[in-house]
Computed example of a mutant assay.
Amino acid sequence: MSATFASALAAAREAASSQNYPQQALYVVATPIGNLADVSLRALHVLELADCIACEDTRHTQALLRAYGIAKPAGGWLSVHQHNEAQGAQEVVRRLQQGERIAYASDAGTPGVSDPGARIAAAVRTAGLAVVPIPGASSVTAVLSAAGAAGEDAGFVFQGFLPAKPQERQQAVEKLAGEARAVVLLEAPHRIAALADALAVLGERPVTVGRELTKQFEEIATLPCAGLPAWLAASPQRSRGEFALVLHPVAVAEDDREALRVLRLLLAELPVKSAVKLAAEITGAPRNALYELALKEKSS
């Protein structure tokens, strides 16, 4: 056990043990995306309680458990990853039907979100068994919270990884150009330069880049898409680590006469939120941009 985390397991037992953790249930456990201190107390308790831990990489998850002083016997592990998830899901169902509690953890973050885990959860539900989420760290929500681009008056789209082939990736970017909402992308270090070049065609549209989120060398920057290749090239370190990005919503230009006309008519009769919601539905303009314009109209 790491001396740094020596008290965490005891705290987890005290905080979470009074809850009910039924057998014959799959517990989908979110684990840290880099910083071990981001694990939740309930996650620790479930990982200790589980009869079996299914995971993307047993070596990776074993290292996490050792840090907190959790030990499992050799038979308490099941490797279920991208290449064997369909078969692994059936083994999970079989063991659940025998009365076990099983926790599933991917290498980092929340399973089933651009990570293995979705097929397992679907198979367990199809078998009529329970799936219990143990929420926690996620690069998606982490980068969104830092970008400030998906507030209560705006939505977002989770796109994940774009295609690896250049032509398919460029076609995907062209589709994103017409998406008015914020878009979350994920990328690996060996492909980030290619993604930056593809996104550069979006010009002045802002993008927030989150690199090595929660880790020692975390870096978060917001800049125009056109400047992303140069930002990466400015330092060799910037091409290292895992990336989560947010394409900000398409802005409504102040000379967009139709959107402004509709918004002004509605503001004369309705509260700001209601006016913005209806204006977005009528004109197709993004809510958060209309909300900013509405605030300007009110203040003037």
Rank of each mutant, 00 (worst) to 15 (best):
P111I: 01
A226G: 11
R211E: 03
H81R: 10
P133T: 10
T58A: 06
R66T: 13
P22S: 14
L295K: 14
T31M: 04
L295F: 11
A43Y: 02
A121E: 04
V184S: 02
S235Y: 10
Y21F: 15
R119H: 07
G117I: 00
A86E: 13
Y104K: 04
V113N: 03
E152I: 14
L64Y: 06
S138L: 09
F161V: 04
Q82A: 13
Q87K: 13
V132A: 05
E152W: 11
V272A: 15
Y68K: 02
L293M: 13
L26F: 08
A280T: 12
A172Q: 03
P116A: 04
A118T: 04
A137L: 08
A3D: 13
V272P: 01
A251P: 02
A127K: 01
Q170Y: 02
L78S: 09
P116D: 01
G241S: 06
V201G: 09
A71N: 09
E281L: 15
T283R: 11
H60A: 05
A146C: 13
W231A: 04
E91M: 13
A279D: 03
A63D: 09
V262T: 12
N288T: 15
V140L: 14
R94L: 12
F243I: 01
H81C: 05
L245K: 02
G88V: 00
I120W: 00
P116H: 00
T31F: 06
A230F: 06
S274P: 02
A259F: 01
P116S: 08
V143N: 00
P229G: 08
V39E: 04
A244C: 12
R94E: 14
G155Y: 12
I53M: 04
Y21K: 11
I192G: 00
P236K: 12
A234C: 08
Q216F: 09
V272N: 07
G76S: 13
A123V: 01
A149K: 01
A279R: 05
S18C: 07
D256Q: 04
S139E: 03
D57R: 07
P135E: 10
E204W: 05
K215C: 05
L41I: 07
A74C: 09
Y21W: 15
A275P: 02
Q237Y: 11
L96P: 00
R181W: 03
H60G: 00
A121F: 06
L293I: 15
G241N: 10
I102W: 04
Y104T: 01
V93R: 03
R169W: 04
S106Q: 06
Q23M: 11
A251R: 08
T4E: 12
D256K: 05
A294V: 04
Q170P: 02
P286G: 07
A142S: 15
I70Y: 05
A108D: 05
D255C: 06
V39M: 09
R261I: 03
A25N: 10
V140G: 00
R66C: 09
H190Y: 14
W77A: 02
D107C: 07
